[in-house]
Design a binder for these strands. Structure first.
Lengths: 181, 181
DNA sequence: TCGCCCATGTAAGTTGTTACATGATTCG
DNA sequence: CGAATCATGTAACAACTTACATGGGCGA
């Protein structure tokens, strides 16, 4: 079976939900996956084309009233199989997360403490802001009365974001002390 | 002043240390920065060329006995300034860390619990293995009697790795419970 | 009328990896 | 003798972003 890249599988996965067009795929990503996955139109539309070419999806143009036509995609059996096969496989390896702050800190340590401190303090602020965003989203989700399965998942991803962000903030505090010594 | 990409600044930074050739830059990265920054030869050599073209570094070929010639690069004043200016700037934004596990979990939740559990358990194992690696490196570093500034930095980056990894492991445990319910 | 939402798409550029070519020396 | 280390480099490909083109409908 042909191998595809992560982006293709992501789109394949989204097509199992109610999102059937390039535009709504982008919307779903920006609303629900944005904390850990982003895709631009420049990837979405060519990928959808590929899916049809490879027989993983079919395309239907639906005419709407008051809105432009939309191309709706639907997974074929082959598409569903390809997705399933990917889902069942554990990830190959944890990717290396590039961290610009650590990079600056390394070279900055050869310069002045002041700048290193500034870099870490700024990073801490950004992380704190992100945490606040997560907490805000969490409240919004929890205030909705809907008891869907999706809600459970959103909370799980938010939890991931919260935990790693908090860990980052704590590292900042600790590092600031360590630099000041 | 011209803007360069992160990789270029990383190399600029490494040139402030004892590493002066493409080969030794690669070595330094693979030994010290590998947990949060990777660069391949395919980037290093063209970038070094660019640095010379832009007057940020000078090149000298040094003849060695019993070893091939090596091209040694040295930062010019302009190069040092460019680096300093980058170092002093706080990072623009925290990049989105792509997480394949969260992605699989999202689509997996529409399928069977069993697979979701497997994915998370596998991820947990990988994180635990990574944590062990970090702890091993930490011991190695600490056992060296050298009291360099670099050692302090290595411990700081390791600390970052440890904290975020532990946070990830805890998330796995929590998520596994949550899925099983 | 202005700007936003809906909707599809592409071209150019950036960034990065992988795989290859080349070749001397040293160590077991 | 074979493998590893030292050393430089490139070409092809993969992945992704940004910016642009196009255009109708709708609400303020």
């Amino acid at each position: 079976m042909t191998k595809y890249n992560h982006t293709t599988y992501a789109i394949l996965g989204i097509l199992t939900t109610d999102c059937r067009s390039g535009y709504s795929i982008k919307q779903l990503i920006d609303q629900s996956l944005t904390h850990f996955w982003k895709i631009s139109y420049g990837q979405i539309y060519p990928t959808l084309k590929l899916l049809v070419e490879d027989g993983l999806a079919t395309i239907t143009t639906s005419v709407q009233q008051g809105k432009p036509d939309r191309n709706e995609y639907e997974l074929t059996e082959k598409g569903k199989q390809t997705l399933r096969q990917w889902l069942e496989q554990p990830i190959e390896q944890i990717p290396v997360e590039r961290n610009e702050v650590l990079l600056k800190l390394f070279f900055g340590s050869h310069q002045s403490k002041q700048h290193s401190i500034q870099i870490v303090e700024d990073y801490k602020q950004k992380l704190e802001a992100r945490l606040q965003t997560y907490l805000g989203i969490e409240q919004t989700i929890k205030s909705y009365p809907t008891q869907q399965e999706d809600v459970k998942f959103w909370l799980i991803t938010l939890d991931y974001g919260k935990r790693t962000t908090v860990a980052g903030i704590e590292w900042c505090s600790h590092t600031l002390e360590s630099i000041r010594d």
